[in-house]
């Protein structure tokens, strides 16, 4: 399996509009990590090794409130469980790629990159150039993300609290989740998860998030089977 320069370029071009969303979220993530007391170097290492903004913002909040390591890791696992779904879906395209490429594809998998791949190839799974397209989009998003987090880490506490930039984190999640709501089952899953997490918010250990994920999956699947 190999790729051509034109496929890489197509992936990079497709990622450009997405970078407009990646950049602010990366800056917010960098600011949130430093503001919660994570040293800049560790924040940057986290960005390189974990490379998953949602879980990094959540962990920053948990660390700031003195949560134990296991809880932070558990919350990260729940939030990043969605990558398993991307992995199952990307497997349809890359199951026959050499192991090295699959390890790299796994590392570069991000919400936006997966979304681009889905847009481009879900209706035309036999089109050539999948690997190049994924790598082009993936590397472009990765570079933009790391640069944005670095900017956020450097700006750090320099952002005045009166700008209320902390609110940009939930807004970024709204921007990621709402476009997923393409059918009634998906809307039902999201509504159920939202109501559950609020109703269960008093539960300890981020169990509310786990309960919300389970309820969302259950309600979504129930809606889906009712329809068919």
């Amino acid at each position: 399996m190999s790729f051509q320069r034109s496929d890489l370029a197509e992936g990079v071009r497709a990622s450009l509009p997405v970078l407009l969303g990646v950049a602010p979220f990366g800056v917010i993530t960098g600011v949130a990590m430093v503001a919660s007391g994570i040293p800049p170097l560790v924040a940057m290492l986290m960005s390189l090794f974990v490379f998953a903004g949602a879980s990094m913002v959540a962990s920053a909040q948990l660390l700031a409130s003195g949560s134990p390591v296991l809880l932070v890791v558990l919350a990260t696992l729940i939030i990043n469980l969605r990558f398993m779904m991307y992995s199952a879906s990307l497997r349809l395209h890359f199951a026959h790629a050499p192991l090295g490429w699959r390890l790299l594809i796994a590392y570069l998998t991000a919400d936006n990159v997966y979304g681009l791949m889905l847009q481009r190839f879900s209706e035309r799974p036999d089109d050539p150039g999948k690997l190049g397209y994924f790598l082009g989009a993936g590397v472009a998003v990765w570079l933009a993300w790391q640069a944005a987090v670095l900017a956020g880490v450097v700006i750090g506490a320099g952002v005045p609290a009166s700008w209320r930039l902390d609110f940009a984190a939930p807004l970024a999640f709204i921007a990621m989740s709402v476009p997923l709501l393409r059918d009634r089952a998906m809307v039902a899953a999201a509504l159920a998860a939202g109501v559950t997490v609020i109703a269960a918010h008093a539960l300890p250990l981020k169990l509310a998030l786990l309960a919300a994920a389970a309820t969302g999956i259950g309600v979504g699947m129930a809606f889906e089977s009712r329809k068919t």
């Binding site: 989740s177 899953a189 999201a190 998860a193 919300a212 979504g220």
Partner: peptide, 11 residues
């Protein structure tokens, strides 16, 4: 359903 459920539950 994991992405829609979990991302919504975060915000």
């Amino acid at each position: 359903y994991v992405p829609a459920a979990v991302l919504t539950a975060i915000w």
